[in-house]
């Protein structure tokens, strides 16, 4: 227990910080801060799959879309309480994740990456085909919209729960099985890890987190679920965030989320590159530079700094 003391203190400080933060922010910035939490949950999900289990996914935007549409549709047609749609999205996308995990058992490496990419491309097209039910390209809206303060509270609370959930999943037997699969499937099998169960489980958990993030994502965009919002770019963004965070680390996720949520906005207000296109240039360059300079992501910096301190 004593070993965990610094971590507990850090958690407490972080909790206090995020609880007090909204009082110091404008409404606009509260919305922005909420979007960090949304990305955080999605990246957390991808990290379970890619960072801890070693299965690449370029399709997490698809799970976000499913979660997001769950919230919008339930609210639109059944007037379901918005907060109740979150666990619902969790369950539904968990199921979808398991379903995707089944074929993924047969695929590996690049082929898996491309199969999930196919998912990211295809899923957002489906609402266009079944537009009567889903509103087509115009999208579908939840029955009521929420304030930024509400959004901030709910998304950061959800993020905290998601973080705790992930930590619990990863620290025990299941987490060990995931890591064993990442390090070597053959070795994992021979030491008693049933690939079929744990791989699909990893897909399920990962997708479920992305689904919840998708729900909040929809609420953050005025309660509108639109196919355009869930384009391939979203999937790529989450992958970038996870890589920047440093795959296989829980603490870096916060930085990764901040990176993809805030950098475009920050760079838009910077001088010289203040155009909408300048954002992309800065974002792209930043991604490349981070990957070149920090091979293990931002999270890799922490142990490196620690080592430096020990040396000094």
């Amino acid at each position: 227990m004593r070993r965990n003391a610094p971590a507990l203190v850090a958690v407490a400080v972080a909790a206090l910080f995020f609880a007090l933060l909204p009082f110091g922010l404008s409404d606009y910035h509260r919305g922005l801060a909420a979007s960090v939490a949304v990305y955080l949950i999605a990246i957390l999900g991808l990290n379970v799959l890619t960072g801890y289990t070693g299965q690449i996914s370029i399709g997490h935007g698809a799970f976000m879309a499913i979660g997001g549409y769950t919230t919008a549709i339930m609210s639109h047609y059944h007037n379901t309480n918005l907060i109740l749609t979150l666990p619902l999205a969790f369950v539904i996308t968990f199921g979808c994740g398991v379903l995707v995990g089944l074929p993924a058992l047969r695929l590996s490496g690049v082929y898996l990456a491309l199969a999930t990419f196919a998912l990211a491309v295809s899923i957002p097209q489906l609402p266009l085909k079944f537009s009567k039910f889903t509103g087509g390209s115009a999208g579908i809206s939840a029955s009521k919209s929420v304030s930024n303060s509400w959004l901030y509270g709910v998304s950061w609370s959800t993020a905290a729960i998601a973080f705790l959930f992930t930590w619990l999943v990863l620290r025990g037997r299941t987490g060990r099985a995931f890591r064993a699969i990442r390090d070597s499937e053959v070795a994992a099998t021979s030491s008693g890890v049933t690939l079929a169960i744990y791989k699909t489980l990893a897909f399920g958990v990962s997708a479920a987190l992305a689904g919840v993030a998708g729900s909040l994502f929809v609420l953050a965009t005025n309660g509108f679920a639109q196919p355009n919002e869930f384009s391939v770019t979203l999937s790529l963004k989450i992958l970038v965030g996870a890589a920047v965070a440093g795959l296989g680390s829980l603490w870096g996720v916060l930085l990764g989320a901040a990176f993809i949520a805030l950098l475009p906005t920050l760079s838009a207000s910077a001088p010289l590159i203040g155009s909408a296109h300048g954002q992309d240039v800065v974002f792209g360059l930043f991604v490349i530079v981070v990957m070149i300079l920090l091979p293990t992501g931002v999270a890799g910096l922490i142990p490196r700094l620690r080592r430096l301190r020990v040396k000094a």
Binding site: I56, A243, F283, G284, V287, M291
Partner: peptide
């Protein structure tokens, strides 16, 4: 993954 991310970064950069 690192190389893939760099190409994704290139994608965004060139677009911009």
């Amino acid at each position: 993954i690192a190389v893939v991310i760099v190409t994704v970064g290139l994608f965004i950069l060139i677009d911009g």
